[in-house]
Design a protein around this nucleic acid. Structure first.
Lengths: 373, 373
DNA sequence: TTGTAAGCGTTATCAT
DNA sequence: ATGATAACGCTTACAA
């Protein structure tokens, strides 16, 4: 018997089936492609039987080679560790399923080098399109994609100099929503904490919108931006130390800070997670879940299990631990983002030629104990 | 100019390059495959130039078709929502990278139907092997794989009637470790909470080991198993209600329960997360992270933010919210599991014929406030 | 050292 | 209604 290196019997090919059914390859191919209209029921059932007997399964690679399209699309993910990514993926998968596409999932794990490698790999496998949740290091590495290359759609962030459809959160609105919520609940000092945002459009937009919202409220002085470079442990250390100083200062009943205290400073831990609303304490606005997690872990380490009594936390993204810890969040319509991205891509693959589109979806504020009275 | 349906210029083929370099396809192929030993430097540089000029990238599909191997392996995941899965994936990716394999990641999202669909898809793309974190519905759906089919290695769980390598946690040891820890810390009542485990070997092993450990300690009567079918909201409701009754009963100072109370029943919430150790209260032993999350959310909803003062929680798996909430865990060597799985698979692909192997890796107990005094 | 030609498993073209 | 046959882009004897 014909065997492969691993000892398994060779898979049947279309030729085998043709021989088994006593006919030509063409008919088999026709059968496979559902061109049943012109085919004697007799032949048809012979083919059916032969296929069953040989357990034949057409080779997609060969198909793709011949047809010039293989129904494969690439899905390049910056960081699977971020729950956002997994959720978007669910939408992507559902849409792919519906459209008969097969996503090749590539996980760059925050490594720029990986991103390049995978992108190259994807083009080498001749995927028909790519959905990119880029690391955002610039368009050099994305060159082969978009514009003149493979159809592409960006998720969450756009990339400078890369014209392509993009779908993601309405960052302006989301940041405003969060800021206003914090302001409405009487927090005096608000820190927007975000990873380095020069390169990443979504972070940039969120930060800008935050500052503008503070300004619009006539409270620009009480809004601060803290950059937290999660990739650099030392930098994180420094940033958190800066944050600690502010928190400690505000907590001093001595009122050494200009904002002053108008809350109930003696609130005990036992009052619960409903923290500090209207008491003039500080609120942290995390630009995304990884930042929020980092902050929460730090605060817990520094202020103990009941850190939420001292500082409020609001985060864009809604990881599962948010409900558990009572952290307020702005949930992104992640599933829809993924689904939409595939729809866009599919249109492009089918040859749609419109100018690059943006699809901005609204976030939903989920108020929890951390920021509400 | 030659264009594709989406308007992009057609990619250069090996023939184009040959023409451009003024040579034959063979030399190009040789160049691509690094058979430089026998090739005039002159030709070589001409080829180099032609490739660069045309931005040529060999078509992996065609390559695979001809060679009979495409360096693709399937990675079938039961549930990407489970942090365990993502972590295993990291190991898989690293190993694939090292071994020159490309993983096709398929996410069944707990849908048996998806599992089947993907498995079929994978064989249709002629992957050289499959790593399966199966839903465990039995070997019917895994028929095409393992044994006489595509080389396969199982992750986390084995499947009845399917002979294949498998790598995962040393479930016996892990469950014993956790049980002993709980016993050592003086918990009277220990509930092992697990999803339906008839079909899933890892759950089954953990449950069995738990009961045996209780028995070995002469405490079988104080150990209970609670089945939590996360797929069925009503069933979850019922199970949690049963749990609540126990907790409430034990918490009554009246001592209406046989186990009695020897702790400090009046402990205030403010005493912190260091919950209930040695006080005769109940400890929950979650068989995995999804179960732990479900329990934690329920307890929080029922007993408030300081539920940990009333009941201790220990979980196999170490999700990021565990550190945040002070839940004790047994961390699985997830990265190694993934890495090892690929190594096994690679060996099989290369034709290794030994009998099916098991690789059991040890878990690590991470004691946090929830269960320690 | 280099090139020619025959496939790999499909589909598409063109006869019959 | 059915079947040869020639591609698809690549590798690999086999020649030269």
């Amino acid at each position: 018997m014909n065997t492969t290196p691993s000892g398994a019997p060779r898979r049947a090919t279309i030729t085998d089936v043709a021989r088994e059914a006593g006919t030509g390859k063409t008919s088999i191919s026709r059968y496979l492609n559902g061109e049943m209209s012109v085919m004697s029921p007799e032949l048809r059932s012979r083919i059916e039987a032969a296929i069953a007997r040989l357990d034949y399964q057409p080779n997609q690679m060969a198909r793709g080679l011949k047809r010039g399209r293989n129904r494969l699309i690439g899905m390049l993910l910056a960081d699977l560790t971020n729950p956002y990514t997994v959720e978007v993926l669910q939408g992507v998968e559902a849409a792919c399923h519906a459209l008969g596409l097969m996503p090749l999932i590539c996980h760059a794990a925050n490594e720029v080098e990986m991103e390049r490698r995978y992108l190259q790999l994807l083009t080498t496998y001749r995927v028909e399109g790519v959905i990119v949740n880029a690391l955002g290091v610039g368009e050099e590495t994305l060159r082969p994609v978009g514009g003149g290359g493979i159809p592409a759609v960006l998720v969450d962030r756009s990339v400078d100099g890369l014209v392509a459809d993009m779908v993601g959160l309405d960052n302006r609105a989301a940041a405003e929503l969060g800021t206003r919520h914090l302001l409405d609940n009487g927090f005096d000092e608000i820190w927007f904490v975000v990873q380095p945002f020069a390169q990443i459009s979504s972070r940039h937009l969120r930060e800008t919108a935050f500052r503008e919202a503070m300004q619009a409220h006539g409270d620009a002085a009480r809004g601060h931006t803290l950059v937290l470079d999660l990739a650099d442990a030392e930098a994180v250390e420094r940033s958190l130390a800066e944050l600690d100083r502010t928190i400690d200062a505000l907590a001093e009943p001595a009122g050494s800070n200009p904002a002053g205290q108008r809350g109930r400073p003696g609130v005990t831990a036992a009052t619960g997670g409903a923290a500090a609303a209207g008491s003039g304490r500080v609120a942290l606005f995390a630009a995304n879940a990884p930042v929020a997690l980092c902050l929460a872990l730090h605060l817990k380490a520094r202020y103990g299990a009941y850190w939420q009594a001292r500082v409020a936390l609001l985060s864009i993204d809604d990881p599962d631990w948010a409900e558990l810890t009572g952290v307020t969040t702005i949930r992104q319509p992640t599933y829809d983002i993924g689904y939409r991205a595939v729809e866009f891509l599919h249109e492009r693959i089918e040859g749609v030629q419109t100018t690059a589109r943006d699809c901005l979806l609204a976030g939903e504020l989920i108020v929890r104990a951390s920021t509400s009275r």
